[in-house]
Computed example of a mutant assay.
Amino acid sequence: MSFTTTNMFAPRIWGFDRADAEWHVARGAGWTRADLAWERLMETGCAGTGKAARRRFLAADLLARLRFAPGDPRRATAAAARWRLTGAEAHRLRALREWQGVESYIETLEIRPRARSSLFHLRMEARHRDTYHANLRKRLTAFATEMRETLEGEGHHRHAARWRGEKPTVFDDTRKLLAACLLIPDGERLRTACRD
């Protein structure tokens, strides 16, 4: 890959210009540049192959270790992606260590209101907020369990393929957790494609 080609893609991931609508929404919700840059690096890494994917995951891993607090599950995800890509056991073991506190993270995460299809559904959520939140936490726990099973080698779950359909439009902690659960490469296909 030439220098110009590499630089051509860098602004899409790292850069946040004034026309970047997603960045404006994320910033308004309290996200940092590191939050959105990590998500974009992981998305492009999962979509890519070969050296480009390895570079994206390495950058995301370094960013997570430098910018995210211990206990943030995204610190585990970047290491897990590198493991899925290369098969390096050291990355898997680090991901498992970092994933240890995910249950307590789920209990403390901030859940912001979702857009609803009708005023009726909006009112129902407002009246039964605790029930909605409990159900969402239960669903997020299922995603976290699948990720743990993958890290332990016990499950063959699709992760990255599900991100597009599960990606929340709201910039809150649930989006960070879902990204942590889903933004790793799917199975052997990518590892085989990356042996170059």
Rank of each mutant, 00 (worst) to 15 (best):
F3I: 12
T5S: 13
N7K: 10
I13L: 06
W14F: 14
W14R: 14
W14Y: 14
G15W: 00
D17C: 04
A19P: 01
A21S: 05
W23D: 03
W23K: 08
H24T: 10
G28Q: 10
G30I: 13
W31V: 04
R33T: 11
A34C: 01
A34W: 02
L36P: 03
A37M: 14
R40E: 06
A47Y: 06
G48Q: 10
K51E: 15
R56C: 14
R56N: 15
F57W: 01
A64E: 00
A64P: 11
P70Q: 02
G71F: 00
A80V: 02
G87Y: 01
E89S: 04
R92N: 08
L93H: 09
A95T: 02
Y105S: 04
I106Y: 05
E107K: 03
E110G: 02
A115R: 14
A115E: 12
S118Q: 04
R127W: 13
H128R: 13
Y132T: 10
H133W: 00
L136K: 00
L136Y: 00
R137K: 12
K138R: 14
F143A: 00
R148Q: 15
E149W: 15
E149L: 12
E152I: 05
E154K: 15
G155R: 09
H157D: 06
R158I: 07
R162F: 07
W163N: 07
K167F: 06
P168V: 06
V170L: 01
F171E: 05
D172Q: 04
R175I: 00
L177P: 05
L183H: 01
G187R: 01
E188H: 11
L190D: 09
